[in-house]
Design a protein around this nucleic acid. Structure first.
Length: 988
DNA sequence: CCTGGAAGGACCC
DNA sequence: TCCCAGGGTCCTTCCCGG
């Protein structure tokens, strides 16, 4: 059996007897599954011989060319290019380079992967395939049950963002093919350049080869950020929880807003056009548009050729059409008003129809939505009234536009406002889930929108012939792998669901299944805390160790800067190395305590690089890129995994009136229900508290004790003793441990202290706290919490020196960390001279040539000296901070859970409130979880309760819930059982 | 057997 | 015109240690 045992086991449990008859109900309609005669024969019918041949084909291709270097035309504005020619140019430009060789190598690896997969496929027996199909269809059934079409998700994507900004600011660029980036790499290109095959992620020099006139503009990120901010401000009005994915794209959910929208007056839905003075060059476009309109150019005509960016590929033309398209409605309306004179009596028609016309032809059919019409129909009278009032008059000069109440109209309005505000166009996709919305936004790019109606049929129609490559998360490699199985479209993907189940990992196959059913995340959630932070730099070859170290130090400093901005510290340092042959290596090392300063990081990075240099010896380590990353911020990973359980446990305990801590093995251990809140400072964290700048830089985590739970454990008292109002002030994790150890640590064996599992003392409370807080991430915003904390000006930095004990926590090889609880700030304060001296020693080639042990010891000694020096300072610092805590109190504080802002005389008030909120959210969550258990499938359940990620980050797992797939499976069991339960009940 | 790092990759913008 | 980025997230595989 190729199936992992665990998998088989799980599926046995969820197997349902009546699946054969149900299958027909739950499988895709036959119409969407061409060629699927029986319910299991067809999906498996691709003869393995064929597949293996296609696998071999890959090998053959490999000899002739490197297909992975081919132009990826999967981008708006790149249709109908002479791919062959372009690829030839690309190939010529690359051939013989190290990059090319490396690509070839990687492609070979992929081919091997495919071949392996094919072998596996060849070994599959018919019965295995059938069994798999049965199981997958079971999943399909569940997934269908959980299909949620109720949300109106929008994906908004600015058109060729960077390039558009540059073109806006330099009209001359509009005439030319241009790209933002440098000779090394292009970030984006305008449509004129795309006609030459120039696109993002292409090296500049190749762009030049493809299009010698290509104008390269260096990026101006500040500008892009500013524009991005403007756009986000608009989006926030429609969905405060919108989720920006990058500077130029975002998801948002219009469902709630649309409810309100219905009650909005026409006036509220009316927007003013920018005046000519405001819009210099745009004005011309507008004029030309109105000319066209005045000439009564057929709208249908105009829109019908819009996809065909045509062979003429006149970008400028397209561009202006882009601009005027959004103005078109207004113009046409104006025209309508002037010419027909009927406009006033039939505003609805104009408003509803106009977007359909100009909103890209493809909309036409999908927009014939009875619901939209119905929605609109509720409004016309009101609208007419308004028309008769202010708006009507104003519109006569053509400077106003009123938008309807349908989601299409709202999105059009958003795009309109964006364009007015930024002079840039955006495209949007509207669909019942994120995955689909994302694809839709590309459909009518640029400056268009597209909606998939919220019906299963419409979704499946859309999906049917969709190339899998269009799906976010399926890249070159996956495409090749799937292609080897004869899978090109989503229908293929569905038909081969049994194979993908057998041949791919659970995560992947589940993801594929979701895709093939048109399912995706129906939540728009902000990204969670960041997981890592890094900097990397490409440079001309470096192989001299001292230069490598020096480069490394630079990077560490840059990284430390960034870390400081966000007040983050992490426990894993990873060094990324790219050799001159483009081979990428990463070397990581994890510590027991988080680090933050450049020197701490460098101490580790340096060791990693040194090891690598030695490994190469006697060859030099020849690099073209180096990067340093910090990750494992506090215990973020642990938190997210167990958070729900914990908060619910908390809640359950309270509910059951159990006066005793339930899961606490040690008598003196902290009461687990203690409402200890901890803010992990991963994201934005504390934007600098009041006081001397830098003074608080050590504060990286803040805890708030929620006081209405009984605090009995001695350890807890220690924690709370700093303040009277129950606000346990911020300690670093390690500081806490240290502190505890100072006071009561001697009672326990060090092993017990180290073990997070043993759940002793402060350690326990900390974990609990972590989890409970993070379980509220959906509800609380870090910023809010931040502001609460900042407002309270709670600042601490405990400095407990117990080097003797601390040793047990620390990696012996990393002297920097030894006194780590003070090091972050201290390093910043350590004299430049010290640092330079230190660095000098580290870089010194002689040092490197010595024996390993000696080197290490030597460096450690230096490090220690530095440390000790800094340590002394931190003591003052600590006491300083502690005292300053007491000085604070009366402020407006914002509850991190419900976000309500209220004045509290003491933090205790806030804490009580937080506690109440926590309970509320726990209940909510529990209910929600229960609900989703009953009604959604295993995967979807994860989608919903397992936070974030679904559509998140480009990877768009569209519902499969990415990580922890094994857990997912086991978690799914109860859900399936429940489902089975309902099934049986229904059947009886 | 299971967990948690480490290493290597795929993908996204 | 000069020769393939940089910042992230997540997944998979391997391996070590409890």
């Amino acid at each position: 059996m190729n199936t992992p045992p665990s998998r088989g086991l799980d599926w046995k449990e969820i197997h349902v007897d009546e699946e054969e008859e149900d299958d027909e109900n739950w499988a895709m309609p036959a119409s969407t599954l061409p060629g699927q005669a029986g319910h299991f024969t067809s999906p498996l019918s691709v003869p393995s011989s064929h597949q293996i041949i296609s696998g071999n084909k890959d090998l053959q291709l490999d000899n002739s060319r490197v297909s992975s270097m081919d132009l990826n035309t999967n981008k708006a504005g790149m249709e109908g290019l002479d791919k062959e020619k372009i690829n030839k140019i690309i190939m010529e430009a690359s051939k013989g380079s190290r990059f090319y060789d490396n690509q070839k190598k990687r492609e070979k690896q992929t081919t091997e992967r495919i071949n392996k997969m094919m072998e596996k496929l060849a070994q599959l027996t018919e019965s295995e395939k059938q069994a798999a199909l049965t199981q997958v269809d079971e999943m399909v059934r569940d997934l269908e049950l959980s299909r949620d079409l109720s949300r109106i998700i929008v994906h908004l994507d600015m058109d060729m963002f960077y390039a558009a900004v540059e073109m806006r600011d330099d009209p001359e660029l509009q005439e030319k093919p241009m790209a933002v980036g440098g000779m090394g790499m292009l970030s984006t290109s305008n449509y004129k350049a795309r006609r030459f095959g120039v696109r993002a992620a292409m090296p500049g020099f190749i762009g030049k080869k493809l299009c010698p006139e290509l104008v390269l503009v260096p990026p101006h990120f500040d500008k892009y950020r500013a524009v991005s901010k403007q756009v986000r401000e608009i989006l926030a009005e429609y969905d405060p929880n919108f989720c920006p994915m990058s500077l130029d794209e975002a998801y948002f959910d219009l469902t709630e807003y649309l409810e309100r929208r219905r009650r909005m007056s026409a006036e509220e839905r009316t927007y003013l056009y920018c005046s000519a003075e405001d819009h210099g060059q745009v004005e011309d476009e507008k004029k030309s548009t109105s000319d066209k309109a005045a000439n009564n150019v057929s709208i249908q005509e105009r829109t019908s050729d819009e996809d065909g960016y045509g062979s003429s590929g006149d970008y400028q033309h397209q561009s202006s059409s882009g601009v005027d398209r959004s103005l078109f409605t207004s113009v046409s309306k104006k025209q309508g008003e002037v010419t027909s004179g009927k406009v006033l009596s039939v505003p609805a028609e104009i408003q509803v129809k106009s977007p359909r016309r100009h909103g890209n032809t493809n909309n036409a059919s999908s927009l014939e939505d009875s619901r939209s019409e119905a929605e609109w129909d509720e409004q016309p009278e009101q609208d007419v009234e308004d028309e008769d009032n202010t708006c009507g008059t104003k519109r006569q000069d053509g400077r106003f536009e009123t938008f309807g109440v349908t989601c299409e109209e709202v999105v059009r309005e958003i795009r309109f406002r964006i364009e007015q505000k930024t002079k840039l166009t955006a495209s949007a996709g509207i669909a019942p889930n994120c995955m689909l919305a994302k694809i839709c936004s590309d459909k009518n790019k640029p400056n268009g929108q597209y909606r998939i109606q919220p019906s299963r049929e419409d979704v499946m129609d859309f999906i049917r012939d969709l190339s899998i490559r269009k799906i976010s998360g399926i890249g070159k490699v996956t495409e090749r792998m799937l292609s080897a199985l004869g899978i090109q479209t989503c229908t293929d993907l569905y038909q081969q669901r049994a194979l993908s189940y057998l041949l791919f990992s659970q995560t992947s196959s589940s993801h594929f299944l979701h895709i093939s059913l048109g399912l995706g995340s129906t939540h728009v959630e902000r990204d969670g805390e960041r997981k890592s932070m890094s900097t990397e730099r490409t440079f001309k070859e470096i192989s001299i160790p001292s230069e490598l170290y020096s480069k490394c130090m630079e990077l560490c400093e840059a990284l430390a800067e960034d870390l400081k901005k966000e007040q983050i510290q992490g426990k894993t340092v990873t060094v990324k190395l790219k050799t001159v042959n483009f081979e990428v290596k990463s070397r990581a090392s994890s510590l027991k305590v988080p680090v933050r300063s450049s020197q701490e990081i460098f101490a580790i990075a340096r060791d990693l690089i040194r090891t690598e240099i030695r490994a190469c010896h006697p060859q030099p380590l020849r690099l073209r890129l180096m990067g340093v990353r910090l990750s494992s911020f506090q215990d973020a990973s642990k938190l997210s995994r167990s958070r729900q359980g914990t908060i619910l446990d908390m809640f359950a305990k309270k509910q059951s009136n159990n006066p005793q801590p339930v899961t606490t093995p040690t008598p003196d251990c902290t009461e687990p229900t203690m409402g200890l809140l901890e803010e992990s400072t991963s994201n934005n964290s504390f934007s600098g508290s009041v006081g001397t700048p830098g003074e608080v830089s050590d504060v990286s985590r803040i805890q708030v004790l929620v006081p209405n739970t009984k605090v009995s454990a001695p350890d807890t008292e220690i924690l709370t003793s700093d303040t009277e109002d129950g606000v346990g002030v911020s300690f670093d994790n390690k500081e806490r441990v240290e502190k505890k150890d100072v006071v009561s640590g001697s009672k326990k064996a060090p092993e017990a202290r180290d073990s997070t599992q043993s759940a002793v003392g402060v350690g326990v409370s900390v974990n609990r706290v972590d989890r409970s807080v993070s379980s509220d991430t959906e509800l609380s915003s870090e910023q809010t919490f931040e502001s609460a904390i900042t407002a309270a000006n709670v600042r601490t930095s405990m400095t407990i020196s117990n080097p003797h004990h601390s040793q047990s926590h620390l990696e012996p090889r990393l002297p920097f960390c030894e006194d780590d609880f003070v090091s972050g700030r201290e390093n910043e304060h350590s004299s430049i001279a010290d640092r330079e001296e230190h660095t000098k020693q580290l870089y010194h080639p002689e040092l490197l040539s010595k024996s390993e042990i000696f080197n290490q010891e030597n460096n450690q000694r230096v490090d220690k000296l530095l440390k000790m020096n800094s340590h002394a300072k931190s003591d003052e610092y600590g006491s300083e901070c502690t005292s300053s805590v007491e000085a604070e109190a009366q402020r407006m504080l914002t509850c991190p859970i419900c976000r309500q802002e209220r004045a509290y005389s003491t933090l205790e008030g806030l804490n009580q409130h937080i506690d109440a909120c926590l309970n509320k959210s726990a209940i909510k969550e529990m209910l929600h979880r229960d609900k989703s258990r009953s009604f959604s499938s295993s995967n979807n359940q994860l989608t919903k309760s397992g936070p974030k990620k679904l559509h998140s980050r480009k990877r768009s797992n569209s519902g499969s819930g990415s990580s922890s797939s094994k857990k997912k499976r086991s978690k799914s069991t109860p859900c399936r059982t429940l489902y089975d339960f309902f099934q049986k009940k229904d059947n009886h």
